[in-house]
């Protein structure tokens, strides 16, 4: 068990800096998900913690020990790779035992730990098989087994579910979560899938373009996104953004509509409101011209434009609704669910 401390981490390839001053503390036993679009540097960050990439500047500590110069094998970590990286010529049991064998663990101890891990993952019956004789989900379990058999201080996951089909992905997601809670091992998990991130992580580190946008709990990310990027990335369908002008206790949208807020703002602002926080209301201040409906059963997504502008609006209304296309429907924002961002810095105004 260990805490992980990232202090002003920077990574450059030649003159190109791809990660900029990443800092953050991960608590003992915590499950942290690093999430962001492809190319944001999340895998690079994970591989730096693993020791597979060098650190350009800054420090990584695992359990109070600075590990920048320590070999991956000596960091007491285990990693689950996207393509599992199982050794194809070794059986499942040999795959799991390999790391222990290199560390000269006694034979009976290896057998005991492999069996134990196999039981946890319910792969005991496959121990004698080669990886190619297993299905995708089973290989995924073996990759997990190889990680837990070592009983490391830290688990690192590099998009481990992206090669599985949608149904299996949901199932394995729950299993990983349960397993991590049961073993209590500090974990870092990289994904580009925000739903996976929200459901798995105790805390999420949202990366964008090599910068940390926000590092907080899923609920906090949802309720108080620190930037337009986080607000748009977390939540589905994505938040609506409307350009507006600030004022004292209100903001004025481009079509003249005034929305009440507890904040005092000035100049150009961006008002954000989530689709699920738009309430159908004949007296509502937001007139939306309906362009298309998506019937999802439990709710209906209304796609349209703010009447008189080109601004796209999505609203999520409960139940099955059939609104006439091209009509104007009025919505009002739920109280206190209006997010305001500075138009220039794109940061939250609070």
């Amino acid at each position: 068990m260990a805490t992980i401390k990232l202090d002003q981490l920077t990574k450059s390839y030649g003159p190109d800096e791809v990660l900029h001053h990443i800092s953050g503390d991960i608590n003992d036993g915590e499950f942290v998900v690093i999430v962001g679009p492809s190319g944001c540097g999340k895998s690079t960050l994970l591989r730096m913690v693993a020791g597979l990439e060098t650190v350009t500047s800054g420090e990584i500590s695992i359990g109070d020990k600075m590990v920048n110069e320590i070999e991956p094998a000596d960091r007491d970590i285990a990693m689950v790779f996207q393509n599992y990286a199982l050794y194809p010529h070794m059986s499942v049991g040999e795959n799991m035992a390999y790391g222990l064998k290199i560390r000269k663990t006694p034979k009976d101890e290896i057998t005991r730990r492999v069996n134990e891990a196999a039981d946890i993952l319910e792969i005991r019956e496959y121990l004698g098989r080669k990886p190619r004789q297993l299905s995708g989900g089973q290989r995924q379990r073996v990759a997990m087994g190889r990680a837990i058999v070592r009983d490391p201080k830290v688990f690192l996951f590099d998009e481990p579910l992206s090669n599985l089909d949608a149904k299996l992905r949901v199932q394995m997601r729950l299993e990983i979560r349960k397993l991590q809670k049961r073993l209590g091992v500090t974990s870092i998990y990289v994904t580009h899938d925000q739903v996976e991130a929200m459901t798995l992580g105790d805390r999420l580190m949202v990366l964008n373009g090599g910068y940390v946008e926000q590092f907080d709990t899923p609920i906090e990310l949802y309720e108080r996104p620190a930037s337009i990027f986080v607000a748009g990335f977390i939540g589905s369908p994505a938040m609506n953004f409307l350009t507006a002008t600030g004022g004292d206790g209100l903001v004025v949208l481009d079509n003249g509509t005034a929305l009440a807020t507890s904040l005092k703002t000035s100049g150009a602002v961006i008002a954000g409101i989530r689709p699920e926080h738009l309430i159908q209301d004949p007296e509502g201040v937001l007139p939306v011209r309906v362009e298309m409906l998506e019937q999802l059963g439990a709710n209906t997504l209304v796609h349209g434009v703010l009447d008189g502008t080109d601004t796209q609006i999505v609203a999520s209304v409960t139940g099955i609704q059939s609104l006439p296309i091209n009509d104007v429907v009025r919505f009002s924002p739920a109280p206190d669910e209006l997010h305001l961002f500075d138009a220039k810095t794109e940061k939250r105004l609070s």
């Binding site: 000596d74 970590i77 990286a85």
Partner: peptide, 14 residues
């Protein structure tokens, strides 16, 4: 041979 073979082996301490 995938790069991950080497990475995995290095984490395993080979």
């Amino acid at each position: 041979i995938p790069d991950e073979m080497l990475e995995s082996a290095r984490i395993d301490g080979a």
